[in-house]
């Protein structure tokens, strides 16, 4: 699944292109081969073509929402951990997001090291 022993493949899904394009570059320095999609439809296309180790999804996406995308991924790719990003003011899950559907929740704005820690933990938990 991985490009090499130390590199994980990650898919970032967020309509803020400047956020995800910058994160892709920063994660590259941290042994994550990251790619991004600006909407759920593109993300699902990419998931069909590439085996990702972890997917990071923004809660608020245009068209198919982040919640809906998480539920689709859970059904179609149960072995891929999902981390949910949100700009919501409190750290509780809201709307229809079910805590069991995602590995963890990260609030924007966040430090990249926080995301890296969460992704490593989520991947490790799914490997066991």
């Amino acid at each position: 699944m991985n490009n090499d022993a130390n590199t994980y493949k990650v898919l970032l899904v967020d309509d803020e292109e400047e956020l995800v394009s910058t994160l892709v570059e920063r994660l590259g320095y941290r042994n994550f081969a990251a790619e991004y999609a600006l909407n759920a439809t593109t993300a699902l296309d990419m998931l069909r073509k590439t085996a990702y180790d972890v997917v990071v999804v923004d809660l608020k996406l245009p068209g198919i929402s982040g919640n809906e995308l998480v539920q689709i991924i859970r059904k179609a790719y149960p072995n891929i951990p999902v981390i949910l990003m949100t700009g919501h003011g409190n750290d509780k899950f809201h709307d229809s997001a079910a805590p069991e559907d995602v590995s963890s929740l990260i609030q924007k704005p966040f430090d990249v090291s926080q995301l890296v820690t969460m992704m490593k933990k989520a991947i490790a938990e799914h490997e066991h």
Binding site: E16, E18, L19, T22, L23, E25, R26, Y29, K60, G87, H88, G89, Q107, K108, P109, F110, D111, V112
Partner: peptide, 24 residues
């Protein structure tokens, strides 16, 4: 206000990552 502050969070998130990229 919830909608606008969500968007402001996004903006701050981008600035934070771009600043982090300079550091990287």
């Amino acid at each position: 206000t919830a909608s606008v502050t969500h968007e402001l969070n996004n903006i701050l998130g981008i600035i934070e990552q771009v600043a982090g990229l300079v550091e990287d």
